[in-house]
């Protein structure tokens, strides 16, 4: 045997396991293959909306989305996007947030909008970046206007942009509405060399 040459085993920290688990479950849920075409049922509602968009323009779609504002029901994780564009897959511009509950068990995201805003404020999220920035160069950053939307699975997704961003990206707005105005920097030094 050669096992005696190995360093001792180590355990992943329970909050880390919980966060990774939540992210994997999200991945599995999204990786579900689409049923074959002969088993697909037409989405009549979606079809009608498509017709309405063609017939009357985007305003109708916006109204449809507003009518279908959806509460957040999946609080295990949420996503903070760095662009006002929805990418449902695993790779997306932004970061996933998950917070371990007090008992070290199921992670909960109770207020995605505030959590995402705090990541923007410290520079971990910046417009257009692919993932979270580990070591931002400045101590504080402006926070863009943020809006919370809800996916079809009931998870919160936060975008930078005006309140109608959810409609623009094809998601339902959160119910109750979750919007946050931009937060500018007053006298906090920003990144880059000073003159």
């Amino acid at each position: 045997m050669t096992v005696q040459y190995l360093p001792p085993s180590r355990q992943l920290a329970p909050p880390r396991v919980a966060a990774l688990r939540a992210e994997l479950e999200l991945f599995v849920a999204r990786e579900d293959p689409a049923p074959p075409w002969w088993r697909r049922r037409r989405n009549i509602t979606g079809g009608l909306v498509g017709v309405l968009i063609v017939a009357t323009g985007g305003g109708t779609a916006a109204a449809y989305a507003h009518l279908h504002a959806r509460p957040v029901t999946d609080e295990r994780t949420a996503r903070c996007y760095t662009v006002p564009s929805y990418t449902p897959g695993f790779d997306f511009p932004g970061t996933t947030i998950a917070r371990a509950s007090g008992d070290g068990g199921v992670p909960l995201v109770q207020d995605a909008l505030d959590t995402c805003a705090s990541l923007w404020r410290v520079g971990e999220l910046q417009l257009g970046t692919l993932g979270a920035i580990a070591h931002p160069s400045a101590s504080a950053y402006p926070v863009p206007a943020l809006v919370g939307c809800t996916t079809s699975r009931g998870a919160a997704v936060v975008f930078p942009g005006p309140p109608d961003t959810c409609d623009a990206v094809g998601l339902a707005p959160e119910s109750p509405p979750a919007v946050r105005p931009a937060e500018s920097l007053a006298s906090v030094p920003t990144a880059g060399p000073s003159p």
Binding site: P7, R10, E23, F92, G94, A98
Partner: peptide, 28 residues
């Protein structure tokens, strides 16, 4: 894109010993 998105573990009081042990593990 996965690990970077997951928040870092909470800060602990003093993990110097743990870090040193992990470095030793990696060398070995």
């Amino acid at each position: 894109n996965l690990v970077g998105k997951v928040p870092a573990p909470e800060v602990v009081a003093d993990h110097a010993d743990e870090v040193a042990a992990r470095v030793d593990d990696e060398r070995q």
